[in-house]
Design a protein around this nucleic acid. Structure first.
Lengths: 198, 198
DNA sequence: CCTTCAGGTTAACGACCGCTAACCTCCCTG
DNA sequence: CAGGGAGGTTAGCGGTCGTTAACCTGAAGG
């Protein structure tokens, strides 16, 4: 875990605010002037950092997909010899951390994909597919009796479950972050177990 | 169950196509000319049927929320004396039917709410809240040991799971509609059961 | 047969929005 | 201390979009 201590660059500021605004009001619902205002500069100043509004969305979505996939691959690589159940737990934990810490990104992730240029969209979809297949392979090691199509559907559904965090009560939710994470984790495992009990 | 046999009115045609287009490309991503073209008339002709583009979205979202809530209330009313487990199964089944049969509406449901006028948004949120609370009450009858905040979170998460259908493989998905419905149902029950096992 | 009206049409307006052009101002560096 | 690039600014262009205006037409009704 490499923790950043230096101040965020202007580019990163912009990306963060753009993600928040896109998640709140949709890609087409946000103007470049608003994004600029959110970081203290005005509209066209953004073009010193990005080729255009589309480029910001592309970088966000590619970044999300890549980050998820990279994290999952790392978890899988670190888990040499550990039981499949624990690997699945690790994947779930990683996804929950991401969903809880970067809610706007999670929202964007399955909402604005169609606004991308063809090449970017293909890239993002490829990364997403790899991520899904990685989960599928682990799920099938835990539940060998689960047929592959069902396993894939189950993985998508569990993503839906874990990605529901933006709908959960905002900060100050009664269970608190740790409690929410644990609840989601239990539910995900329960959902997979039930899926396998055909 | 009242089944429609007469032809859909022009208004209904428009709403259906608008829902599809909004779900595909987002509210701001669709022009009125496209909606008109989808029903064989051109742009401004829509204004004979709706006050504006906003009105179409409002009618769609209010309709969805109302339909979900009405269906759930009916199921609850019909279930006098039956065990709580079966009532929960009935709620799950109803939600799955809706998610599988009206994917565009499910997509809109939690994606474009913020584009509504204040009054409409309040109405939709109120209907949604009633729907959630209805589920929470049933879930707590099945799992009395589950604290209310956790039950509410669990319900939201299960909605996320059930509403994942748009991400599932398009028509011709291997399990088929019946199999998908059954898989989702099992997973939802498994998720609730796991949530209660604190 | 005349009227009315529901349900279309096209033209056009005004607002907004993404983006570019042109310009300015520090700050770093040789 | 010259100068140049990084990172801003404002003005404005061109296109798109929601909406309105004005007009047309076919069918129903007295």
């Amino acid at each position: 875990m490499t923790t950043r201590t230096d101040a965020p660059t202007r580019r990163e500021q912009i990306l963060k605010e753009a993600a928040r605004l896109f998640a709140e009001r949709g890609f087409h619902g946000v103007g470049v002037d608003e994004i600029g205002a959110a970081v203290g500069i005005s509209g066209p100043g953004l073009y010193r950092h990005f080729a255009g509004k589309d480029a910001m969305l592309a970088e966000l979505l590619v970044g999300i997909s890549g980050q998820l996939l990279t994290g999952a691959k790392r978890r899988l690589a670190e888990a040499d010899g550990v039981p499949a159940e624990e690997v699945l737990d690790s994947l779930i934990e990683g996804h929950i951390d991401f969903a809880l810490d970067d809610r706007p990104l999670i929202t964007l992730h399955d909402r604005e994909l169609d606004r991308l240029r063809d090449s970017d969209r293909k890239l993002v979809r490829q990364l997403q597919r790899q991520y899904v297949e990685l989960w599928v392979s682990v799920v099938r090691r835990v539940y060998p009796q689960l047929p592959e199509p069902a396993a894939r559907s189950a993985v998508h559904s569990v993503f839906g479950l874990l990605n529901s965090t933006p709908h959960l009560a905002r900060p100050g939710s009664l269970p608190g972050r740790a409690g929410t994470a644990e609840l989601l984790h239990r539910m995900a495992r329960g959902a997979f177990a039930a899926a396998a009990q055909g």
